[in-house]
Protein backbone atom coordinates (compact mmCIF):
# COMPACT_ATOMS: atom_id res chain seq x y z
CA UNK A 1 0.00 0.00 0.00
CA UNK A 2 1.30 3.47 -0.76
CA UNK A 3 1.25 6.06 1.97
CA UNK A 4 -2.03 6.01 3.91
CA UNK A 5 -4.35 8.71 2.69
CA UNK A 6 -6.01 8.99 6.07
CA UNK A 7 -5.79 7.50 9.51
CA UNK A 8 -8.64 7.62 11.98
CA UNK A 9 -8.48 6.91 15.65
CA UNK A 10 -10.56 7.45 18.74
CA UNK A 11 -9.41 10.11 21.13
CA UNK A 12 -10.81 11.26 24.42
CA UNK A 13 -13.94 12.91 23.26
CA UNK A 14 -14.26 12.12 19.60
CA UNK A 15 -12.13 11.06 16.66
CA UNK A 16 -8.76 12.17 15.39
CA UNK A 17 -8.49 12.13 11.62
CA UNK A 18 -5.01 12.52 10.20
CA UNK A 19 -4.86 13.40 6.53
CA UNK A 20 -1.91 12.65 4.33
CA UNK A 21 0.28 15.69 3.85
CA UNK A 22 1.47 14.72 0.38
CA UNK A 23 -1.36 13.04 -1.55
CA UNK A 24 -3.75 15.07 -3.64
CA UNK A 25 -6.33 16.93 -1.53
CA UNK A 26 -9.19 15.70 -3.69
CA UNK A 27 -8.26 12.03 -3.33
CA UNK A 28 -7.72 12.44 0.39
CA UNK A 29 -11.15 13.98 0.95
CA UNK A 30 -12.84 11.48 -1.35
CA UNK A 31 -11.31 8.67 0.64
CA UNK A 32 -12.44 10.30 3.88
CA UNK A 33 -16.02 10.62 2.66
CA UNK A 34 -15.97 7.00 1.60
CA UNK A 35 -14.60 5.79 4.93
CA UNK A 36 -17.28 7.69 6.84
CA UNK A 37 -20.09 6.57 4.56
CA UNK A 38 -19.02 2.95 4.97
CA UNK A 39 -19.50 3.11 8.73
CA UNK A 40 -22.09 5.79 9.25
CA UNK A 41 -23.44 4.36 12.48
CA UNK A 42 -20.01 4.42 14.02
CA UNK A 43 -19.14 7.97 13.11
CA UNK A 44 -22.49 9.64 13.56
CA UNK A 45 -22.43 12.61 15.89
CA UNK A 46 -18.71 12.46 16.64
CA UNK A 47 -16.60 15.52 17.32
CA UNK A 48 -13.68 15.53 14.93
CA UNK A 49 -10.11 16.71 15.34
CA UNK A 50 -8.36 16.98 12.01
CA UNK A 51 -4.61 16.78 11.77
CA UNK A 52 -3.23 18.34 8.61
CA UNK A 53 0.49 18.34 9.34
CA UNK A 54 2.62 20.60 7.19
CA UNK A 55 0.22 20.82 4.24
CA UNK A 56 -0.88 24.40 3.60
CA UNK A 57 -4.65 24.25 3.24
CA UNK A 58 -6.38 27.30 1.78
CA UNK A 59 -9.66 28.48 3.20
CA UNK A 60 -11.89 27.08 0.47
CA UNK A 61 -10.44 23.59 0.88
CA UNK A 62 -10.82 23.65 4.62
CA UNK A 63 -14.32 24.98 4.31
CA UNK A 64 -15.27 22.14 1.97
CA UNK A 65 -13.75 19.64 4.41
CA UNK A 66 -15.84 21.15 7.18
CA UNK A 67 -18.95 20.90 5.00
CA UNK A 68 -18.11 17.31 4.09
CA UNK A 69 -18.05 16.41 7.77
CA UNK A 70 -21.11 18.41 8.70
CA UNK A 71 -23.18 16.86 5.94
CA UNK A 72 -22.46 13.54 7.61
CA UNK A 73 -23.49 14.75 11.04
CA UNK A 74 -19.96 15.26 12.35
CA UNK A 75 -18.61 18.44 13.80
CA UNK A 76 -15.12 19.73 13.21
CA UNK A 77 -13.95 20.73 16.66
CA UNK A 78 -10.24 21.33 16.19
CA UNK A 79 -7.76 21.75 13.36
CA UNK A 80 -4.20 20.77 14.12
CA UNK A 81 -1.60 22.01 11.74
CA UNK A 82 2.02 23.02 11.37
CA UNK A 83 1.26 25.41 8.57
CA UNK A 84 0.52 29.06 9.14
CA UNK A 85 -1.65 29.15 6.03
CA UNK A 86 -3.83 26.36 7.33
CA UNK A 87 -4.18 27.88 10.75
CA UNK A 88 -5.08 31.18 9.15
CA UNK A 89 -7.78 29.44 7.10
CA UNK A 90 -9.10 27.75 10.22
CA UNK A 91 -9.28 30.98 12.14
CA UNK A 92 -11.15 32.73 9.37
CA UNK A 93 -13.70 29.90 9.49
CA UNK A 94 -14.01 30.32 13.24
CA UNK A 95 -12.47 26.92 13.87
CA UNK A 96 -10.30 26.20 16.85
CA UNK A 97 -6.77 25.42 15.84
CA UNK A 98 -3.59 24.23 17.48
CA UNK A 99 -0.06 23.52 16.45
CA UNK A 100 1.02 19.93 16.32
CA UNK A 101 2.98 19.45 19.41
CA UNK A 102 0.67 17.03 21.00
CA UNK A 103 2.06 13.68 21.90
CA UNK A 104 0.88 11.80 18.84
CA UNK A 105 2.06 8.23 18.59
CA UNK A 106 3.38 8.02 15.06
CA UNK A 107 4.45 4.42 15.41
CA UNK A 108 0.94 3.30 16.12
CA UNK A 109 -0.85 5.38 13.58
CA UNK A 110 -1.21 2.53 11.12
CA UNK A 111 -2.65 0.10 13.60
CA UNK A 112 -6.05 1.76 13.60
CA UNK A 113 -7.01 0.39 10.24
CA UNK A 114 -6.55 -3.17 11.50
CA UNK A 115 -9.47 -4.86 13.18
CA UNK A 116 -9.45 -4.34 16.91
CA UNK A 117 -8.21 -7.35 18.79
CA UNK A 118 -9.27 -7.13 22.41
CA UNK A 119 -6.59 -9.55 23.55
CA UNK A 120 -3.85 -7.55 21.98
CA UNK A 121 -1.90 -5.33 24.25
CA UNK A 122 -1.89 -1.81 23.03
CA UNK A 123 -5.55 -1.68 22.09
CA UNK A 124 -6.60 1.80 22.96
CA UNK A 125 -9.33 2.60 25.39
CA UNK A 126 -10.82 5.61 27.07
CA UNK A 127 -12.12 6.03 30.55
CA UNK A 128 -14.75 8.55 31.58
CA UNK A 129 -14.87 9.34 35.23
CA UNK A 130 -18.31 10.89 35.25
CA UNK A 131 -21.91 10.23 34.50
CA UNK A 132 -22.80 10.60 30.84
CA UNK A 133 -25.99 12.62 30.67
CA UNK A 134 -28.66 12.72 27.99
CA UNK A 135 -27.36 14.08 24.69
CA UNK A 136 -23.75 13.05 25.26
CA UNK A 137 -22.20 10.66 22.75
CA UNK A 138 -18.88 8.90 23.17
CA UNK A 139 -16.98 7.36 20.26
CA UNK A 140 -13.93 5.19 20.54
CA UNK A 141 -12.01 2.95 18.23
CA UNK A 142 -10.95 1.01 21.29
CA UNK A 143 -12.67 0.09 24.51
CA UNK A 144 -14.73 2.44 26.63
CA UNK A 145 -14.91 2.42 30.40
CA UNK A 146 -17.42 4.68 32.08
CA UNK A 147 -16.85 5.17 35.77
CA UNK A 148 -20.33 6.53 36.42
CA UNK A 149 -23.77 6.08 34.91
CA UNK A 150 -24.82 6.16 31.28
CA UNK A 151 -28.14 7.96 31.49
CA UNK A 152 -31.07 7.55 29.12
CA UNK A 153 -30.41 9.62 26.00
CA UNK A 154 -26.62 9.22 26.23
CA UNK A 155 -24.79 7.01 23.76
CA UNK A 156 -21.56 5.02 23.84
CA UNK A 157 -20.16 3.68 20.57
CA UNK A 158 -16.99 1.62 20.67
CA UNK A 159 -15.15 -0.67 18.31
CA UNK A 160 -14.17 -2.73 21.34
CA UNK A 161 -15.86 -3.51 24.65
CA UNK A 162 -17.91 -1.20 26.82
CA UNK A 163 -17.68 -1.42 30.59
CA UNK A 164 -19.99 0.69 32.71
CA UNK A 165 -19.15 0.88 36.37
CA UNK A 166 -22.57 2.22 37.20
CA UNK A 167 -26.05 2.14 35.76
CA UNK A 168 -26.36 1.61 32.03
CA UNK A 169 -29.62 3.13 30.83
CA UNK A 170 -28.69 4.82 27.58
CA UNK A 171 -27.78 3.35 24.22
CA UNK A 172 -24.60 1.36 23.84
CA UNK A 173 -22.91 -0.16 20.81
CA UNK A 174 -19.93 -2.44 21.34
CA UNK A 175 -18.01 -3.94 18.44
CA UNK A 176 -19.31 -1.10 16.31
CA UNK A 177 -16.86 -1.90 13.50
CA UNK A 178 -18.10 -5.45 13.33
CA UNK A 179 -16.30 -7.30 16.11
CA UNK A 180 -18.77 -9.91 17.32
CA UNK A 181 -16.60 -10.93 20.24
CA UNK A 182 -17.13 -7.54 21.91
CA UNK A 183 -18.98 -7.45 25.21
CA UNK A 184 -20.89 -4.92 27.28
CA UNK A 185 -20.66 -5.06 31.07
CA UNK A 186 -22.56 -2.97 33.58
CA UNK A 187 -23.25 -2.99 37.29
CA UNK A 188 -26.89 -2.33 36.51
CA UNK A 189 -27.77 -3.38 32.99
CA UNK A 190 -30.90 -1.67 31.77
CA UNK A 191 -29.98 -0.02 28.47
CA UNK A 192 -32.50 1.68 26.29
CA UNK A 193 -30.91 -0.19 23.42
CA UNK A 194 -27.90 -2.46 23.30
CA UNK A 195 -26.00 -3.29 20.16
CA UNK A 196 -23.07 -5.59 19.58
CA UNK A 197 -21.68 -5.58 16.05
CA UNK A 198 -24.84 -5.79 13.91
CA UNK A 199 -27.15 -7.21 16.58
CA UNK A 200 -29.65 -5.07 18.44
CA UNK A 201 -31.72 -5.73 21.55
CA UNK A 202 -33.78 -3.60 23.88
CA UNK A 203 -34.25 -4.17 27.58
CA UNK A 204 -37.35 -6.13 28.47
CA UNK A 205 -39.97 -3.86 29.98
CA UNK A 206 -40.82 -4.65 33.53
CA UNK A 207 -40.89 -3.16 36.90
CA UNK A 208 -38.26 -3.71 39.52
CA UNK A 209 -35.51 -5.99 38.44
CA UNK A 210 -32.90 -7.38 40.67
CA UNK A 211 -29.88 -5.16 40.30
CA UNK A 212 -26.71 -7.08 39.71
CA UNK A 213 -23.67 -6.87 37.45
CA UNK A 214 -24.31 -8.41 34.05
CA UNK A 215 -22.45 -9.06 30.82
CA UNK A 216 -23.91 -8.96 27.34
CA UNK A 217 -22.29 -10.87 24.50
CA UNK A 218 -23.17 -12.63 21.27
CA UNK A 219 -23.81 -16.35 21.44
CA UNK A 220 -25.49 -18.47 18.77
CA UNK A 221 -26.27 -15.41 16.67
CA UNK A 222 -28.05 -13.51 19.36
CA UNK A 223 -27.26 -11.20 22.21
CA UNK A 224 -27.44 -12.85 25.60
CA UNK A 225 -27.23 -11.04 28.91
CA UNK A 226 -26.17 -12.95 31.97
CA UNK A 227 -25.07 -12.36 35.50
CA UNK A 228 -21.48 -12.88 36.51
CA UNK A 229 -20.86 -14.00 40.01
Amino acid sequence: MPEELIAIKGINDGLLISLSTTEKWQSVTDELAKRIDDKRAFYSGAAIVVELGARPVPKYELSSLKALLERRGLSLSLVRSDSDTTRQSARSLNLTTSENGLPAEPARRHAETNPVNPEETGTRGVIFRRTLRSGRTIHSEGHVVVFGDVNPGAKVIAAGDVVVWGKLRGTVHAGALGDESAVVCALDMNPNQLRIASYIVTSPPGKRRKILPEVASIRDNQIVVEARD
Binding site: R133, S134, G135, N151
Partner: peptide, 12 residues
Protein backbone atom coordinates in the same frame (compact mmCIF):
# COMPACT_ATOMS: atom_id res chain seq x y z
CA UNK B 1 -36.45 14.21 33.81
CA UNK B 2 -34.80 13.32 30.49
CA UNK B 3 -34.74 16.96 29.45
CA UNK B 4 -33.49 18.00 32.87
CA UNK B 5 -30.63 15.53 32.45
CA UNK B 6 -29.71 17.08 29.12
CA UNK B 7 -29.76 20.55 30.64
CA UNK B 8 -27.58 19.43 33.53
CA UNK B 9 -25.06 18.11 31.03
CA UNK B 10 -24.97 21.51 29.31
CA UNK B 11 -24.71 23.32 32.64
CA UNK B 12 -21.80 21.12 33.64
Amino acid sequence: VRDADRIVGLIE
